[in-house]
Design a binder for these strands. Structure first.
Lengths: 152, 152
DNA sequence: GCGGTTATCGCAACCAGCCGCAATAGCGGG
DNA sequence: CCCGCTATTGCGGCTGGTTGCGATAACCGC
């Protein structure tokens, strides 16, 4: 029963191959981390992932989760974003890329299309030759709701 | 009642008054944190500040430094910026505001004028009513030197 | 100045995340 | 199908930073 349908994005089968192609191995733990990321498809924390997995496989160590996230990131399969609270959030790389706005007063999170951030990236590239990854860190500020309240 | 003159610079004396005006207290430790920030005027880490102070006053606890930085930030005397390495850097609030670019490959730090970032802030304000603080987090990416090396 | 209120301190415990190490287990070759 | 090489695991311990707590000491009013 080997690789058949190339349904959409990344069938579990091909991920394994991709991992092996770089000399890395597809372990149970690694697969579990990927599954957890797929299920909680939105920015999860490593902690979240770890505890979700441990409900079923209590022997899996948190550090294994951290190392796997890192390894999968190297492969380009997952990415992380820094939010304001000092925990890092992880998600599958193929999820469409977007920027994040975080309200420092109410904590609300907004997503904005990359197209909005792109002009700045272009400018940084032109002026400084700097290839910016604007999705990597959330933009902090004050959301419209909080801004209007505080100015009243 | 003496609080009165708010000169815009911040002579040590008036800082004390400003602190007291909000019900906070001007302690030795707090003064030491401020002094350390003045000396190392550019983005220091809390750790740096703590160890600098402890050379003279070994009994001062790191947590005190952290709490004081926070308290001083609430007063608007100090601000912090998040760099890539998850280390927070602190500086006096009156230091001129600017953006930061960080190369994820060589770690180089570039400073850019706020005017470069301003258009994005304006757009976020217009489209989402979101008042962004673009100096708060450094922009990660790849600097021109590293970019040209890796593409060769 | 003196005393009471309470912000702040130092300490110890805690948390997310990371690292070194010995044991385990994928994977490719025979 | 088995073997050996070595990536990866689980564990224990560590780091940078944060928090809860009882003790201490600024500040304000008298």
């Amino acid at each position: 029963m080997r690789a058949r349908a190339i349904t959409h994005a990344t069938p579990a089968e091909s991920i394994g191959e991709r991992v092996r192609a770089t000399g890395k191995r597809m372990t149970v733990q690694r697969r579990l981390v990927l599954e957890a990321l797929q299920q909680a498809k939105h920015h999860t924390t490593a902690e979240e992932i770890a505890s979700r997995i441990r409900r079923q496989y209590p022997q899996i160590d948190p550090s294994t989760v951290y190392r796997n996230l890192e390894a999968l990131e190297e492969l380009g399969l997952v990415t992380h974003t820094h939010f304001e609270d000092r925990v890092t959030r992880w998600h599958l790389a193929d999820a469409h890329r977007h920027g994040h706005l975080i309200c420092r007063s109410c904590g609300a999170e907004l997503e904005v299309p990359m197209s909005l951030l792109e002009p700045l990236a272009a400018k940084l590239r032109a002026k400084h030759g700097f290839v910016a990854d604007l999705a990597h860190s959330a933009v902090v500020g004050v959301c419209s709701a909080c801004a209007s309240v505080s100015s009243r």
